[in-house]
Design a binder for these strands. Structure first.
Lengths: 249, 249
DNA sequence: GTACATAGTTGACATGGATCAAATCGGACG
DNA sequence: CGTCCGATTTGATCCATGTCAACTATGTAC
């Protein structure tokens, strides 16, 4: 029935980086057209996860890192006594699991914040490939560097900034990340709950809520539930003290 | 006058990883004897820095990462408005500058806390070499992963833990790092000032000072200036809540 | 040795945000 | 449509830690 197809086509288990709309954000960003094939050879089209499902947790043996294809992911560390520390939010085109290379298990737990699909890069194959493609290797180093920087920025936010500053910085970070994905930088829907925001920013939920309403009263944002509209980006930048140096970008 | 020397010998600008006492901690850790030569080929014996001197700062174009050979280094981010956030302390065998790969300039400022010597790895040559030596590449990924993890642990410490817990965790981290370097885990001299500790842990100097004296009154430590003796490690672990999961190890 | 600067300690007080409590909203489901 | 449960908001109170101020110790230059 199906006739032979002369052109490249993804097998069911294989992602097509060539056709992916995120190729200017994700790993393919580093590669020429013809090297892209080699990346496609190792990528596995991952499962789709429903909201709340774990992509992996700290007891999962480390095998792969994952690129978000659609949806969004939250990573967190769960301590022995059950406390959680949210370490990041990941949007389409971003790589999750870079903090675990060389470890037996994942160093954090990754949970889908909404219906989310991912591409899976088995780490052994990825390392092998980066050994052959210097640009890809460089890009990996660069991504990991940025992850370190982001985390330092977060530490800075946590140790030096007030609740308002932290929340302003997060909103700005999300804004610029939505923008890079060609979505509105001023009108978006938060993928995460207030609780996750609070945890990520080292605040109590109540504080987050209060700051949101304060911002709203000042006419800086408009928020109803997870729907957010940034009315005055400049004001947000003023609040976040260190203009545009966001915790994640 | 000088006669030809038949055996490998470090040129003035070249470090000898073969003879380095840190070879079980540093990059050589990943390599077989014979691959070590290739690492030696790219290492540059760095300058010696006096206390307070900058190895690099955020205006320095990114060229290399550095391994601490002796002494110790503090890294920090300086914001536009002059605020400082200490992001880490580095001891012999540890690598500084992994947060800047792929950036134009260093992402942080590195300052010698005491008289310090470093080995310099030009990043372009290092990347080239890791492309050829899979074990070295893997080790680099692993080191960078750990740096991300450390930073997440720090963020966690900052957002969830009390002053006492943070300081206990730092003391334990230093202790285990001294131990790995075959120095006493209970009797050491802090390389950094109270100020740096405070900044790193997101506290006021006064708070650090108070906690030190509190610990001392409880008989957990003995401290005179920078000289510290850990009298009751178990008690410290109790205090630091999440037993032994330190911010840096 | 004296003097000045820098680092560390201690005390008194103020406050941002945590905590506790309760009300309200919103969505899933029968 | 009504019910239920979790998420969010709002209010009242409390406390750990910051801030300000003063004092002490340590080190460095002359």
């Amino acid at each position: 029935m199906a006739q032979a197809i002369p052109f490249r086509q993804a097998s069911p288990l294989k992602a097509s980086c060539h056709q992916c709309s995120l190729s200017n954000l994700c790993l393919p960003l580093a590669l020429e057209e013809n090297d892209l094939d080699r990346l496609e050879d190792i990528v596995q089209q991952g499962r789709i996860f429903n909201r709340g499902e774990h992509i992996f947790d700290q007891s999962t043996p480390y095998r792969s890192c994952f690129a978000v294809k659609s949806g969004s992911i939250k990573t967190s560390i769960i301590t022995e006594n059950g406390e959680e520390q949210v370490t990041g939010f990941f949007m389409p085109g971003e790589l999750v699991g870079l903090d675990s290379i060389g470890s037996e298990h994942y160093a954090c737990t990754a949970k889908a914040l909404e219906r989310t699909s991912v591409c899976e890069f088995p780490i052994d194959k990825l390392e092998e490939l980066t050994g052959k493609l210097p640009e890809l290797q460089h890009h990996m180093y660069h991504l990991m560097s940025q992850e370190i920087q982001n985390s330092h920025q977060l530490a800075m936010l946590l140790s030096k900034n007030t609740a308002e500053e932290r929340i302003a910085a997060l909103l700005l970070s999300l804004s610029s990340r939505f923008q890079r994905r060609r979505m509105s930088p001023t009108n978006f829907s938060l993928p995460m709950a207030r609780n996750d925001i609070a945890n990520f920013l080292g605040l109590a939920v109540e504080t987050v809520s209060r700051v949101f309403t304060r911002f709203q009263n000042q006419g800086i944002i408009k928020a109803r539930g997870r729907e957010v509209e940034l009315l005055d980006i400049e004001a947000l930048q003023m609040v976040s003290r260190e203009f545009s140096r966001q915790c994640n970008n």
